[in-house]
Computed example of a mutant assay.
Amino acid sequence: MGTSEKLMEAFKRFDEANAEDPNKEVFEGREYPKELLYAQRMTHILNAFEPEASEALQLTVRCQHICRWEIPRESYEMNRVGYLKWRQELKKFHAQKAGAILKEVGYDDGTVERVQFLLLKKQLKKDEDTQTLEDVICLVFLMYYYDPFIHKHNDDKVISITQKTWKKMSPKGHKAALGLSFSNRGLELVTKAISE
């Protein structure tokens, strides 16, 4: 199986797993399993942001939230400590789940380990692929999930989250983010957050 065939087979398996998501999201009049739609958006943004992305990064981007619903946020304490613990457990869960699929598809140990390294978000700001992954995650949030988010939270919380998001991004990510189409309210809050 050639590289591109393996990549497509891995995407297919990741998508089949994410298609089991019982949570749904309606986009442009059509209902999707939430994590399947998220994974496809991640690939779409990566292709625009970093068209020459390594194969390991392409794989990571597609499976970054794989089967996320299996570990619900509510299964941890609803405070900062619980949130951080949930996020850490999710990273390990995604790495294990993705690794098993990649081995079934026929990827070598080096590729599997690289994808797992990226899923664990190791060496942010130091590793180029980890940083690109983080930029893509932030861009997907800002493009598709920011407006719904600002309607659910007060301005102070939105500004704080926007600032934390901005800090994780590279200058290239900042430039791409400023080129996104925000609602008037979204643009106002982003502008306020990054100017403070």
Rank of each mutant, 00 (worst) to 15 (best):
Y107A: 11
L102V: 05
Y146K: 07
F93V: 01
D109G: 10
Y107D: 14
Y76H: 14
Y146P: 04
F93E: 08
Y83C: 03
I66H: 11
T132Q: 03
Q64S: 06
F141L: 04
A19Y: 14
E28K: 07
R87E: 09
P33T: 03
A56S: 15
D21A: 10
P148H: 10
Y146C: 10
T60A: 10
R87C: 00
K91V: 00
V136W: 11
A19M: 11
L57E: 11
Q40G: 01
E25A: 12
E77P: 08
K126T: 07
Y38D: 02
M78T: 06
Q40T: 05
E52G: 12
D135H: 03
V81R: 14
P72F: 07
L46H: 12
L119D: 12
V140N: 13
Q131R: 00
E28G: 00
L59V: 08
C63N: 09
A95W: 02
K91E: 11
I66K: 05
L120C: 04
K97N: 06
Y32Q: 03
N23M: 10
I45L: 08
E28P: 00
L46C: 09
R114S: 07
R68S: 04
Q88W: 00
L90C: 06
M42R: 07
C67P: 00
W69N: 02
L118N: 05
N79H: 05
W86G: 02
D109I: 08
V26R: 12
E28M: 06
N79A: 08
Q123N: 13
L102N: 08
R87N: 03
V105K: 14
M78S: 13
P148K: 12
Q131S: 13
P72V: 07
H44N: 13
Q116K: 13
H94P: 00
Y145W: 13
I71T: 13
L120F: 00
H94Q: 01
F141P: 04
E77Y: 06
Y144I: 04
E35V: 00
L90F: 02
A48I: 02
Y107Q: 13
I66M: 09
A100R: 12
V136Q: 12
T111M: 15
V112A: 10
I137Y: 10
V105I: 15
Q58R: 15
C63K: 04
A95C: 02
R62N: 10
K91W: 01
W86F: 00
E35N: 04
A48L: 14
Y146A: 12
Y146L: 13
Q123Y: 03
L139P: 06
G99P: 01
H94F: 07
G29S: 09
S75A: 12
T130S: 15
D147G: 02
N47S: 14
F49I: 04
Y146S: 10
C63R: 05
L133C: 04
N47D: 15
C138Y: 11
I137H: 10
K34H: 09
A39F: 06
Y76S: 09
L59A: 09
E113W: 00
W86P: 02
Y32D: 03
I71R: 15
G82P: 04
L118C: 03
V136F: 09
